[in-house]
Design a binder for these strands. Structure first.
Length: 205
DNA sequence: CACCGGATTGGCT
DNA sequence: GCCAATCCGGTGT
């Protein structure tokens, strides 16, 4: 079942970030179907979050996607070569967005390994936001995709709702210029899952 | 395993 | 012109 827009409409981005864990991210790109379970997310809370591209409700050609309907995919390029996949949430016009940082590969694993130039599946295939985007064929041309339509990228119900006790919370990754926002506990992952992007150790329970 | 530098380009000042 | 919500390969322990 594709997840309906109502799932993405809530005010509480931290709650939605947690509920996104265990959901199934699917792509049908270049004729290849792939899917994976979302095992790690990071929240960017508009407009007060200095780490958000839309800090202070700044609208630019890039950030305008962040102000579109909840349930829209926001994909942008970082370091000139990596495509990072985010989900827009919150009431329409509020630029909340959730970065997906890692997925556990499910269907189409051979295609994913091929796109990553790997001879076999291992955790390095999808354990980072740039990595799984390559594996699943996600690129910036799909920025603005409606994730509630089964077209090229969509999200389905996957595993049953992750028990809050099975979620680890910690600071976000790569915060160099976000000042006091750098330490906000906005990163969520499924405890003990081996497909996430960093060791368990830095996390608060 | 930890640390470090280079890759590579669009977006913004 | 600067630099980023990253990744990878090389080096050293």
């Amino acid at each position: 079942m594709v997840i309906p827009r109502s799932f993405y409409e809530g005010e509480d981005i931290l709650e939605i970030s947690k509920r996104l864990l265990g959901k199934k991210l699917c792509t049908l790109i270049d004729g290849q179907y792939t899917s994976g379970i979302i095992v790690e997310t990071e929240a960017y809370k508009a407009p007060e979050d200095k780490a958000s591209h839309a800090y202070g409700n700044k609208v630019t050609p890039r950030t305008k996607t962040m102000f579109s309907k909840p349930g829209t995919g926001y994909i942008y390029i970082i370091y000139g070569m990596y495509h990072l996949f985010n989900v827009i949430t919150g009431p329409e016009g509020v630029a909340h967005c959730i970065l997906v940082r890692a997925v556990e590969p499910l269907e189409g694993q051979e295609a994913m390994a091929r796109r990553r130039s790997m001879s076999k599946v291992r955790k390095e295939m999808t354990n980072g936001p740039g990595k799984f985007s390559i594996a699943m064929g996600i690129h910036k041309g799909l920025n603005g995709t409606d994730l509630t339509q089964r077209e090229q990228i969509w999200i389905e119900e996957g595993w049953p709702l992750t028990d809050p006790k099975e979620i680890l919370v910690g600071p976000r990754v790569g915060m160099s210029t976000a000042e006091e926002c750098s330490n906000w506990p906005f990163r969520f992952r499924i405890k003990g899952n081996r497909w996430t992007s960093k060791p368990d150790t830095v996390y608060y329970e």
